[in-house]
Structure formats: C-alpha cells, structure tokens
Design a protein around this nucleic acid. Structure first.
Length: 474
DNA sequence: TGGCAT
DNA sequence: CGTAT
DNA sequence: GCCA
C-alpha cells in the first residue's frame, strides 16, 4: 500500500517507478540511439541552456528527446510485439499512455522504430537541413522569443562535430560554422589563425591534437587503474586521517558498469571534509592529490592540457554556501548561474594511461561534507535525465534537490511551511517533518541514496528500482 | 498558461 | 570562457 | 511538446 494509492500518478512519478537498464530486453537500442542523435542535434543547433549566459530558456526539443529516450529505456513491453498485435495506430495509442509521450512523440517513436529514421527531423538534420515541425513547416530558427532568432537550425552535423571538441562549446561551434564557414574538425585544424582567435590557448591546441583519443571509450583495464591509482594516492597523502579516504566510480562507470569516453571518480571520507584549515588558510585535499598525480605523470598539468579545478575557498567561513546561493537565486533572477554547479571540490582534466600512454578525460569530485555523500553520489551518478526527473519530483514536493541536501523551497501560496514524509511504510506510523522556508532536511533522515529516493516517494518504496545504479540509465 | 534541474 | 551529472 |  503506497501513499499515492487512489490518486493518479503524475508523469514524473510514473517515470521514477520504472527501471532504466543500460540494455533493455526489447531490442530498442537503435531507437534509443536515434533519439539521442536528435537530442544532440537540438543541443548543438540551439545551444544548451548553460552554454548561453544570456538566455536561461529551456531547450524544450532536446528535453523532449531526452525524456522520450528515457521512456523507451523504461518500457515494460515490446514495441515489436505490439506492432504485430495491434498495428501502428494501436501502438501509438499505447505509447501515448506512457508519461511524456503525446501524439507527436509517440508517432515519431513508431516511425523511427519501423524505418530507422524520422523523415521530418532526423533525416533532415543528418543532411544538414533544418527540421520540420509537426505542422510540416521548416524550423529555420531556434525559437527563443526573448532574443533575436540568431541561431539557424541548419548544419547540424558540423555543429555536433565541432562542439564535441573539448574547449569548444555549442555556441562557439555555431559561430565557427556561420561566421567562419568551418564545417569539420579537419577544416578547423587547417586554419591555425582561426584556432588562435578562439582564445583557447594551449588547452584548445592540445584537445584538437588529441581529439580522437579523447573520444575513445576508456578500456576497462585503464578505468580500474585510474580508480586504484587515485585511491592509493589519496590514502598516502599527508592530510588528516588520509587512510579514511575512499574513491569510487560514479557517472557512466556506475550506471553502465563501464566507462564511456571519461571516467568519473567520487572521493569521500566518513569524518573529514574536502578541505582543512592550516595556518595559511584552507588546504584542499584535491590540490594535494593533483600535485602528486601530476608529478607522477598520470594527470596532465595545466600548462600542457585542459585542466580545470574548482575548489570552494569559503568552506571554512561559510560551511553551507549553497543555502545562501539558493536564497540569492530565489530573491533575484541574477545569481542564478551560481546554482549550475554544486559546491563539491572538483577537477576536470586529462589522464595519461601508464599502460598505453593514451589520454582520457577524467573528472574527480571530492564530497565536501561527510553527510552529503548520498546526495553527491546520486547527483554524480546521474544520468542527467534522471537527475532532472528526480529534481522535478522534488519541486512537486516543495523541495530543492541538489548535490548536497534537500532544502524546503517555502515558495508555495499561503504558507512557508513544507511537510516532508520521510517514512510511510506499512506497519509503521508515518513520519512527517515540517520545514521552514529554505530549511534543509536534517541529514539523519537521508543517509543513503535509498533514503533520498524514499523521501522523493513520500516515504514509500515506490521508486526502489532506482536504488540499483544499473537501473539509472534514463 | 507557465514551467521545464541544479 | 568552458566545464558536470 | 507535454503536463499540471
């Protein structure tokens, strides 16, 4: 008996009740790939929200494709069998009963499943043409009403290719295509004066030079070696209770059980924060770790390759900076971009395999406070789409869910109080916590990813399939 | 009809 | 300026 | 484009 019994589930709830295995049992991988391509074309042509500081509009088309792909991954029935038994129309109707699929998406899914492509979108994108909307009109421009329509939907393949280069954002790729007539990485490599104009310096030169290597999947042997080396190195550092540091795979390495083109590693400690105070001010475990890894030749130094480190210097003055940030974001529309990142210390850089000498992207995240571990794990395990769904669910419950904690939004009509059902399982009295505006949910109620999922399910186990990270490939 | 993750 | 799930 |  769950708390939502009797009520219709929202689309987000229906999604979170599903399991999203990497490879499903119903032969949908080609369909999933096509939906992913469509999402990438939309992101490359329109720009992702964060790629454009001027505009915080949602790329709704990309969002539609991401959700459609997640629904397909989570399907508990066979499209092929349904098409045989009920035909095209019957299958479209059945798809429309799934969350987030209306007529447009359901029809598109069936077309792609049957023909391998979609004539009005994917086939046109792949030819470099602008797609057609559901009425058959050419979608020549990204529709962002609040700004001039300066982004043509043409040249998708060129934009996808150029923006796949580390240090080249979607916006830069769009400019390269339309202002400099660059249509491929090969063409960009032939124009050093244009590369120089991009102001990416040696980092861009390096990522252009090693682009192919950086795109290759990281072999399992190397991913294991990266994790092992990071773990052993951090445990040997001269920092407080060094032996208590842990390193684990997050990201695709955790949801798929194998690395993609990068390896994401989360570092955490049961008692220690990500930094400690010395007489000279805060010292970051990540900095000391990077110093050793660079010296050992495993991590490429910042003078040589892409190297991005973000540490929260104010942690010891303001232990919970995100509370202030959430407050700022609520009060003014500015300060919003500060929310796009969490406040765990992190490193985005390049690893050199000791075995093969090949280069691979690596992300290191150091959990900032011990009790935030389940939130850091959940967020950095993802996927991106699942994070968005879980955070949408949190919004429905009046909560903010980030990579640190739950915080009551307190922005509902009438009251600033938020009631959180932390436990409502059979045979027990339900446990309800009342929070004031911007008050975090105490960590004692959320000590694991399972606890977070239970809070999202109003104290029930309705979302328990997602406890297993291999079911999180939404 | 506003909102779409942080 | 570009970067993450 | 889909949902509440």
């Amino acid at each position: 008996m769950d708390a939502t019994a009797g009520k219709e589930l929202t689309a987000v709830e229906q999604m979170l009740c599903k399991a999203f295995p990497d490879v499903g049992p119903f032969g949908t991988s080609a369909l999933e790939k096509a939906l992913r391509k469509l999402e990438k074309f939309e992101l490359a042509c329109q720009g992702d929200d964060w790629a454009d500081p001027e505009c915080k509009a949602t790329n709704t088309e990309a969002l539609q494709y991401a959700r459609a792909r997640a629904v397909v991954k989570g399907l508990s029935w066979s499209l092929r069998e349904s098409l045989q038994a009920r035909g095209r129309t019957g299958t479209i109707e059945r798809l429309m009963e799934e969350p987030f699929l209306g007529k447009s998406n359901a029809t598109k899914i069936v077309e792609i499943f049957q023909t391998g492509t979609c004539q009005r979108t994917l086939a046109r994108f792949e030819r470099g043409e602008a797609p057609l909307d559901s009425e058959g009109n050419v979608r020549m421009w990204a529709h962002r009403h609040e700004h001039k329509a300066t982004r043509p939907m043409t040249d998708g393949p060129a934009k996808v290719e150029l923006s796949s280069v580390l240090c080249i954002s979607a916006m830069t790729a769009i400019k390269l295509v339309h202002e400099r007539n660059i249509r491929s990485i090969a063409q960009l490599r032939d124009r050093p004066e244009i590369v120089r104009e991009l102001h990416g310096g040696h980092r861009l030169d390096h990522s252009l030079r090693f682009h192919e290597q950086l795109q290759e999947p990281v072999p399992a042997e190397d991913a294991c070696e990266m994790l092992k080396t990071v773990r052993e190195t951090v445990r040997a550092l001269r920092v407080p209770r060094a032996a208590g540091w842990h390193a684990e795979l997050v990201g695709g390495g955790r949801t798929r059980g194998r690395a993609g083109h990068d390896v994401d590693i989360l570092l955490w400690h049961k008692e220690e924060m990500a930094s400690f105070l010395s007489s000279q001010g805060p010292v970051f475990v990540l900095d000391i770790l990077l110093g050793v890894l660079v010296e050992q030749g495993r991590v490429l130094p910042k003078g040589e390759a892409y190297f991005s480190r973000k540490c929260v210097a104010s942690r010891h003055d303001d232990p919970r900076p995100y509370l202030r940030q959430i407050h700022m974001a609520q009060e003014s529309s500015k300060g919003f971009e500060n929310l796009q990142y969490d406040h765990h210390d992190k490193f985005f850089g390049i690893w050199r395999s000791a075995r093969t000498g090949k280069l691979h992207r690596i992300d290191l995240v150091v959990c900032s406070h011990p009790e935030e571990l389940p939130f850091a794990r959940l967020a950095w395990t993802g996927t991106r789409t699942l994070n968005r769904l879980m955070r949408l669910r949190a919004i429905d419950l009046g909560l903010y869910l980030g990579a640190h904690c739950f915080v009551a939004r307190g922005d509902r009509e009438g009251t600033t109080e938020t009631k959180v059902v932390v436990d409502a399982q059979a045979g027990r009295p339900p446990e309800v916590i009342t929070l004031g505006k911007l008050e975090p949910l105490p960590f004692k109620y959320v000590q694991s990813e399972e606890d977070i999922l239970r809070v999202l399910a109003c104290g029930t186990n309705a979302f328990a399939k997602l406890v297993d990270p291999t079911n999180r490939n939404a």
